[in-house]
Simulated scan of single mutants.
Amino acid sequence: MDRFKAMQTFVQIADKGSLTRAAEALGSSLPAVVRSLAALEAHLGVRLFHRTTRRLSLTEEGRHYLPSAREVLLAADAADLALKAEAREPAGQLTITAPVLFGHMYVAPAIVRFMQRHEKVRCSVRLYDRTVNLLEEGIDVGIRISPLEDSSLVAQTLGTIRRVVAASPAYLAQHGTPRHPRDLAGAPCVRGRIDAPAQWLFRDGGKTISVTPNNRLEFNHLAPAIESCAAGMGFGTFFSYQVMPHVAQGRLKLVLEDFEPPPRPVSVIYPNARLLPARTRAFIEWMKMEFSGLRL
């Protein structure tokens, strides 16, 4: 059995969701694909797919095996590229993800400058306000505002971003400016995400303290939450870059700055592969240059 070819077959079946479509993608016959999968399952001693006449789905063992198989194939592809002339010049498709607003304000302009410098690179940019699985979703590089929890990825810190509390000057003039996080108890607050943490965290004398906000108004998107705070609906907690334009315009004011939690790291993340395509290496270095010393 050609184990490498069998892994390719397995990944294609998982990606295409069909033996027939996998055979077409591989330029092979359906019987050959079936034999390759059967040989791999016999070698591993487990079934990788549940198969019926109408449906094909991964087993639990198949779901565990898929990320490892992808890494083997990616490493092999990277090794091949390292020996080719193309590997010395950034070229080809690069898929990038970032948080929606941060991506719009900071990442997208940096990508435009990168592409102007490297004309043979094509980019697909996906902006999501959720944790993205790079390997499963076929993404080369991500920009993340949080500590890295996935040990299969590499993270290089680009800078840090503060978590702040803001309210409108008019609201503060009418109700007073809080001096301590406990002053927020009972005060009206605006929630920018339905799945946001139930408590707001602060630092007081080296200790972490928490406050349960009185969320009078909730949104599943940040933009209307920020606008509502600016309209005087109460306090909101946001990343600093999300509200700084409004602070600069005098529509919002930061409070409790002495009690802010530690800043969050902003990192460029990518799969833990020794050999990366030149376009990926070049983009990582570009982002490190663009965001050097970032403090927001």
Results as ranks from 00 to 15, higher is better:
120 K>E: 14
218 E>F: 02
56 L>H: 01
44 L>Q: 09
66 L>N: 05
52 T>P: 08
184 L>W: 07
283 F>R: 03
290 E>A: 14
276 L>M: 03
290 E>D: 14
147 P>K: 12
39 A>H: 15
217 L>W: 01
13 I>W: 11
126 R>C: 07
164 V>C: 09
210 S>F: 05
293 G>P: 01
158 L>W: 02
166 A>H: 01
220 N>E: 14
161 I>K: 05
109 P>R: 09
245 P>A: 09
244 M>N: 04
174 Q>P: 05
4 F>M: 13
80 D>M: 09
215 N>R: 00
222 L>K: 12
242 Q>S: 10
212 T>F: 02
170 A>P: 00
283 F>K: 02
128 Y>D: 06
11 V>K: 00
177 T>S: 11
47 R>Q: 03
196 A>V: 02
220 N>S: 15
4 F>K: 05
97 T>E: 09
46 V>P: 02
260 E>W: 13
130 R>T: 05
290 E>Y: 00
86 E>F: 10
97 T>W: 07
209 I>R: 03
98 A>E: 00
190 V>M: 09
37 L>F: 00
115 M>A: 15
239 F>T: 09
205 G>V: 03
126 R>K: 10
128 Y>N: 05
12 Q>N: 14
65 Y>E: 13
163 R>F: 02
144 R>F: 07
53 T>K: 15
98 A>G: 04
287 M>A: 11
74 L>A: 15
108 A>G: 06
60 E>G: 09
74 L>Y: 13
64 H>K: 14
3 R>I: 11
94 L>Q: 03
173 A>H: 09
139 I>F: 06
157 T>L: 03
268 V>A: 09
211 V>G: 04
258 D>N: 15
219 F>P: 13
175 H>N: 14
103 G>T: 05
170 A>Y: 02
94 L>V: 08
188 P>C: 01
31 P>T: 08
